[in-house]
Structures are given as C-alpha cells and as structure tokens.
C-alpha cells in the first residue's frame, strides 16, 4: 500500500515550508538558516551569534585542554629560563593587575601567616620571620605577560621545591594550588612538575629589597617558566592536591598550563 500523504492535494510542499519558516520567531529563523548554510566561514567571521555560540566555545575549550597536554609534554623540567645581567633589568618594573595599585592588598607582615594544606606531612602555618630564615637564592629573569609585553626583574627567595621537601609534601600530587589576598580572591593552580622546577621560587624580595606592595608583599610565587598570571602575588595559602581547583583567570578562559 502506498504511503499515506498528509499533505493537502494541490498545495506546493516547498511553498508550505517557506511559509512556515516565515512564522518562526526571528532568532529561530536566523539559526535555521545559518544551520542550513553552515559552510559558515563567512558567517563565522562576521562576528554574529554563531561565533559566540556555546558549540564554538566548547570546541575552543577542548582545544585549550589539548594544548595543556601538548605543553606538559613539551615541558622539560631541566630547561632553565634564560637569566640576565643586572643591567638588563626593566626600570621601573611594571605593576600589573586587574585593579589599580591603590586597590592592591595591604598585608600586615606581622599578622600574616602562610597556611599549608592538603597532601603534606606538616601542616603548620609559617610566619614571615620563619620563612625569611630559609635559604634564599636570586634570579634575574624575564616576566612574560599573557598580554604580550615582557619585563626583566630581579627576584630573591626560597626555591619552592626546597620548601615542599621541608614540609613533606607529596610531590606525586598533581598540583600546588595558591590562594591570594587580592580582592575577589585570586587563586591559581600550578602543576607539580612546574612547582618542582629549580627556578620556581617563593619570592620575598624584589631587587634585593623586601618585596614591595606593588609586586606582591609579603610573598609572591615566581615561576619563570609560566606566564605572569600564573605567578601569584599576595599569597596566603598553598594546598598540595590532586584536584584541579581552577583559577581566577583560568576559569575565565586563559589557558591553564600557560607555560613559557
């Protein structure tokens, strides 16, 4: 038996579809048409809603994850960031944050304590005086901002890997997660291999002076193998963890590994 036609005899199918499209709400219609003509290169480039659609975002997020893996693969734990003579230091070294210098955290060094959490043997908090007694080293390296600019600075402090050893951290864990005193609660995860890099430093001094407020008093984590936003300032706690806890900028879309 022939299939029963639901169409009214004498009505042109194509005209019917055309008419029904016209009754769709405008946005649906645009999407319907964009979906149909999705060779889309030009539609994409005109910057209309196709670009901001969640499917494009999801794809970009996937590629960014892939790029994390590629960067972890490329990362050589023994490759040192180039160092420079003192004459190469950028003066003045720029202050950079998502707020003005006037709004930068004002930490009282006497009250401040570094909290240590997570997969570590000794979870005691550290005062600034205690931290200052640890052996320190200096480095003059290039700070590269995610925005593209770079500046050479001089940082002095304790290699993070020495501190992690001291507190009995489980260095097989995936991340060291830093939390900061910045308004809106800055935080950032650092993969363990980068945390153990010989140049990754708990920084207490800039240009041989106590770290000024602009550069993250009382403590900054200097990671010359990472972009600037992965060098947290005004650090108040660190947690050794296997969980990816996200970060202030990472959650907004900056690539999480962001290695140099």
């Amino acid at each position: 038996m022939a299939k029963r036609s639901f169409l009214i005899p004498g009505v042109d199918k194509r005209l019917l579809i055309k008419d029904s499209i016209k009754t769709m709400p405008d946005v649906t219609r645009r999407r319907f048409i964009a979906g149909g003509a999705s060779l889309g290169a030009l539609t994409l480039l005109t910057g209309c809603d196709v670009v901001d659609s969640s499917s494009a975002d999801a794809l970009l997020a996937k590629v960014s994850k892939f790029n994390d893996a590629v960067q972890a693969f490329i990362f050589n734990p023994d490759a040192l960031a180039p160092t420079f003579p003192e004459s190469a230091i950028t003066k003045p070294f720029p202050f950079n944050a998502y707020y003005d210098l006037d709004d930068a955290p004002e930490v009282d060094g006497k009250d401040w304590k570094l909290e240590v959490r997570g997969l570590v043997d000794n979870k005691k908090s550290w005062t600034l005086d205690e931290l200052y007694k640890l052996p320190q080293v200096s480095q003059i390296t290039r700070h590269i901002c995610v925005e593209g600019w770079s500046a050479i600075g001089s940082w002095t402090g304790t290699p993070l890997r020495d501190f992690l050893k001291l507190i009995g951290a489980d260095t097989r864990a995936k991340y060291v997660w830093f939390q900061c005193a910045d308004k809106d609660g800055y935080n950032s995860p650092l993969d363990m291999r980068s945390a153990l890099h010989p140049q990754t430093q708990m920084t207490f001094k800039y240009a041989n002076e106590i770290l000024p407020r602009a550069y993250g008093f009382p403590m900054k984590i200097r990671v010359p193998t990472k972009l600037g936003f992965k060098n947290p300032k005004y650090v108040v706690s660190m947690e050794v963890t296997n969980d990816y806890k996200g970060g202030y900028w990472e959650d907004q879309g900056y690539n999480s590994f962001s290695g140099s």
Partner: peptide, 21 residues
C-alpha cells in the same frame, strides 16, 4: 574591535591557539 575575534584577550588567545594547529 569589530575586526577582532574572541570578544576579549582570553577569547582571542583561545582562537589563536586553536587556529594555529
């Protein structure tokens, strides 16, 4: 701005480091 992709720096970087492949 009309001739840039991504809406902001983070979005531009995502596009740049995806299209580079």
């Amino acid at each position: 701005r009309e001739y840039t992709l991504g809406g902001w720096l983070g979005g531009g970087l995502l596009w740049h480091f995806a299209a580079m492949w």
